[in-house]
């Protein structure tokens, strides 16, 4: 088997294959405070996202329904996992750090140094960093995050095109 093919293990790490196949946070929330859709018209990936806020304004829970590749489903699932318990400002910080990681392989130091808790969450997303070597797949990883930002900003629809 060629080296190049084996390099795919960097993209499709076990965590991704596992969460892509058996997402833990799939499903519409029975009660929610915000929702958004994400759409990648180029490839047909779609996600719907629901958020429930705690009384203090933190994200309490996220649920999603996605039709897409292993990368986009795994990314949505890991995202739903890490955003639980974060403030809206922290979500924005995580998004920009994650986007940077997806594009360049690692996040700028500033973002990950913000707090130990955020750094830990970002670490949980690290298996997705492999997409940076597959430019046409970066959008698969970031689509759920665009939907998340649309949900917290109240813009409802987004596109990662």
């Amino acid at each position: 088997m060629s080296e190049s093919f084996e390099a795919l293990r960097d993209l499709y790490q076990d965590v991704i294959l596992d969460h892509g196949r058996h997402p833990r946070h799939a499903g519409r929330l029975a009660a929610f405070d915000a929702a958004a859709k994400g759409d990648n018209p180029m490839c047909g990936d779609r996600i719907q996202l629901w958020l429930k806020y705690a009384p203090d304004g933190h994200v309490e829970q996220a649920g999603f329904e996605a039709r897409g590749c292993a990368i986009s489903v795994a990314s949505a699932d890991l995202m739903a996992e890490v955003v639980a318990g974060t403030s809206v400002d922290e979500v924005r910080a995580l998004f920009s750090a994650f986007r940077e990681m997806a594009k360049h392989g690692s996040a700028a130091r500033g973002a990950s140094e913000q707090s130990a808790a955020l750094a830990e969450k970002l670490e949980r997303l690290r298996p997705l960093a492999g997409v940076h070597e597959f430019p046409s797949r970066v959008k698969c990883a970031t689509l759920p995050w665009h939907a998340l930002i649309a949900a917290i900003e109240g813009t409802q629809e987004t596109s990662s095109e």
Binding site: L11, A70, I71, F134, R137
Partner: peptide, 23 residues
């Protein structure tokens, strides 16, 4: 089965095989 078309296309591409995936 068990693989989305985009994943199939990426894995084929890494073997030098160009196919299209999508709608």
């Amino acid at each position: 089965a068990n693989a989305h078309a985009h994943d199939v296309a990426t894995l084929l591409d890494r073997q030098g095989i160009a196919v299209r995936a999508g709608h």
